[in-house]
């Protein structure tokens, strides 16, 4: 708030240091109210990652004079100097509290992921490389111990073939309307082919059960459960584009699930959600069993329901 209307601090985004404060970047004209600065554009994903029901404020910053490149239905190819900013909030209206802001910076040496923890006064967020825990009441009314990930845990989800990459802004999970705006403003070179394919989560009941569930698995699981990522050794590949039933877990036996498998034998048994390890782990709050392993301290009722409906209607093998 001390530097209203100043341009985004490109030297902080692209530099080698780990800025201590979120305000150092000048991404916001009004930090506390999350009013973005010039060049910082809010966006949403059709089907987002669920994080204990947190409200998420997403922004993308592409430096002046540069633009992102369309690359089919996949991730937009962002130029050096890009920042993806995501603030996590709980509570409505005047009760809303900002908890953490995660930034993903595209530096000349590669993407860097950093977590910032908001202060009690809600005036600033400070770098917390080791993460944190704090008590939160979720929108579902549950009291949880909310986990702010540490810097390494950022990479557990954002790591692909040993480098950090963005996860969310894939053309297939972004609205055509938003992408059009980005093209018009010159921040994106062209409308990507295959944009806006994943269903909008709030309208999922209008979508076929398999698309809603597959979109959820893509957004919530596939950053680890895919080749080259953290859970690659499981052999489970939950990406949207995967069409091999076995890779998707259908009649696939677990590999190293340990007690995460419960008493169950297969990841997904068509027609039998309660005998499917995938759903069992989604429905567990217990560390060592719960999936996703990070960023979840409670159960996503909507997500588990979508996956349940998908498994119920899968044809028997």
């Amino acid at each position: 708030m001390t530097s209203e209307r100043a341009p985004v601090a490109d030297e902080q985004v692209q530099g080698k240091t780990l800025p201590r404060k979120l305000s150092d970047y000048r991404f916001f004209d009004d930090l506390a109210r999350q009013v973005p600065a010039e060049g910082v554009t809010p966006y949403r994903l059709n089907t987002p990652l669920w994080s204990d029901g947190a409200e998420k404020l997403r922004f993308v910053y592409v430096p002046p004079g540069t633009q992102a490149l369309a690359d089919g239905e996949g991730l937009l190819r962002f130029p050096i100097g890009t920042a993806l900013i995501k603030t996590f909030a709980f509570g409505e209206g005047a009760e809303r509290r900002l908890i953490e802001t995660r930034v993903l910076l595209n530096r000349p040496t590669g993407w860097v992921a950093l977590p910032y923890l908001w202060n009690e006064e809600q005036t600033e967020a400070t770098l917390a490389v080791a993460g944190a825990r704090l008590p939160i009441t979720t929108p579902a009314g549950e009291q949880i111990s909310y986990r702010v990930p540490n810097k390494n845990q950022c990479k557990e989800c954002h790591g692909l073939n040993d480098v950090v990459v963005p996860i969310g802004p894939k053309a297939r999970n972004l609205s055509r309307q938003w992408l059009t705006g980005m093209v018009r403003s010159g921040r994106l070179d062209a409308m990507p082919d295959g944009a806006d394919v994943l269903p909008v989560w709030e309208e999922r009941t209008n979508a076929p059960a398999d698309l809603a569930a597959r979109a959820y698995l893509e957004a919530n699981c596939a950053h680890c459960h895919r080749p080259g990522a953290t859970a690659s050794n499981s052999g489970l590949d939950l990406r949207w584009e995967q069409d091999d039933p076995h890779a998707l877990g259908i009649m696939k036996r677990p590999v190293a699930a340990g007690r995460g498998a419960g008493d169950l034998l297969f990841d997904v048994i068509p027609g039998k959600p309660d005998q499917s390890i995938l759903l069992y782990r989604m429905e567990s709050p217990e560390p060592g069993v719960a999936m996703p392993e990070l960023g979840k301290s409670s159960i996503d009722g909507e997500g588990t329901e979508a996956v349940r409906r998908w498994i119920e209607q899968l044809p028997a093998q």
Binding site: A257, G258, G262, D263
Partner: peptide, 8 residues
């Protein structure tokens, strides 16, 4: 054997 049944 005290492994959960789904494991090899």
């Amino acid at each position: 054997n005290f492994a959960p049944p789904g494991n090899i």
